[in-house]
Structure formats: structure tokens, C-alpha cells
Simulated scan of single mutants.
Amino acid sequence: MTIDLSLFTAEDISHELPELAKLLHDCVHAGASIGFIMPHSMEDAEGFWRDKVAGPVASGTRLLLVAKDGARIAGAVQLDYDTPANQPHRAEIRKLLVHPDFRRQGIAKRLMATIEDEARRLRRSLLTLDTRTGDTAEPLYAAIGYHTTGVIPGYCRDTHKDRLDSTTIMYKNL
């Protein structure tokens, strides 16, 4: 297996919309807490990429880094650098996704290392993110140098269950 990483343009998003939707759809169905709840359709997933991501990518305020195994999308992460004038040094990591079939192969670490390099290229020295407290991503972020600033209880609905989950807010200085 050879995983290639590349930055996607808005045109790439349009061209790869079915594969991106499958990535998101399958991650949500596997329980990922990334802003969606069940039921979650392929149309919902396509709408996210088309309506929420393609515009900021096209306008130059967000990067989308995608990991591919041949024609199949294995993972993705976004860097949102649409910040106020008093925060030109900061960016936010959004929606680190690794398809369930590709987990535990180092893809998340590669995506994060590469998106951090892109942040440096954009002269961003502080990255922030949030993750569901106790989720498998939380120790990954800690292992690659992110620090916890706090936990917000009852932050979001669970993907599958009728309950509220906490979120952990993290940061990393580059």
C-alpha cells in the first residue's frame, strides 16, 4: 500500500466528491464525533464537502489535505486559517478523518505532520483543535505535541446515542 498526500483544490473536491463523501459517511457511521449525528446519508456527506469545504478552499482560507491509496481516499484533514486581523499567527485543525479500513497505519500522523508543515509555510505558529473527550484521537494529538487547555462538558451530541459528550480543547505551538 502506497499512501500519497496532496492538497485538494475546489475542483479536486468536485471531481472526488463521491470518494470524499464515502470517507465522511463511513467515519460517521463508525462513531466519529465530527459534527454529524445519525441518520447520516451520503447526500449529507456530499453536501458537507460541497457546501462547507469547497468554498473556503476556493477562497484561499482553508486547506484540504487528502491521503489516497490509488483511487481510494484513505483520510483527510483541514487547516482553517480564516482568522481575524489580530490572529494572523493562528489556524485551526478541522476534521481529521481516517477511513476505518485504513486506521492504525500511521496515516493520521502523516496527515498531521504535513498539515503542520503547511501551517508553517503560511506563517502560522499556533494551531488549535477540539476533539471528543476520551476519543481515540485525544492521545494521538497528545503524542504529537498538542497540549490540553481544558474540557467543555456537554459540548455536543453523541453520533449514535442520545447523550451529550464533552470536548477537549488542545493547542500546539509550531
Results as ranks from 00 to 15, higher is better:
78 Q>D: 02
72 R>S: 15
36 F>P: 02
6 S>K: 14
102 F>L: 03
96 L>N: 00
9 T>P: 09
159 T>Q: 02
108 A>N: 02
173 N>T: 14
21 A>N: 07
32 A>V: 10
150 G>V: 04
172 K>L: 01
119 A>I: 06
102 F>G: 04
124 R>F: 00
72 R>L: 11
141 Y>S: 08
157 R>Y: 10
144 I>G: 02
108 A>V: 07
10 A>Q: 07
29 H>C: 08
135 D>T: 09
78 Q>H: 03
105 Q>H: 13
49 W>Y: 14
44 D>Q: 10
84 P>Y: 08
44 D>A: 06
159 T>N: 04
31 G>L: 06
134 G>Y: 05
87 Q>I: 03
138 E>L: 03
172 K>D: 01
22 K>Q: 15
48 F>K: 00
155 Y>F: 14
35 G>N: 03
106 G>F: 03
30 A>I: 02
163 R>N: 08
130 D>I: 00
77 V>Y: 02
6 S>N: 14
81 Y>M: 08
18 P>T: 08
150 G>E: 04
92 E>M: 11
14 S>W: 04
159 T>E: 06
99 H>D: 10
9 T>S: 15
144 I>W: 06
2 T>W: 08
153 P>F: 02
5 L>M: 08
58 A>E: 14
30 A>S: 15
153 P>S: 12
23 L>G: 05
102 F>M: 09
86 N>R: 09
80 D>K: 06
132 R>C: 10
40 H>G: 04
158 D>Y: 08
95 K>M: 10
148 T>K: 13
25 H>C: 11
62 R>W: 03
173 N>A: 14
135 D>K: 08
55 G>T: 05
17 L>A: 11
54 A>K: 03
45 A>I: 06
92 E>G: 09
80 D>G: 00
90 R>E: 06
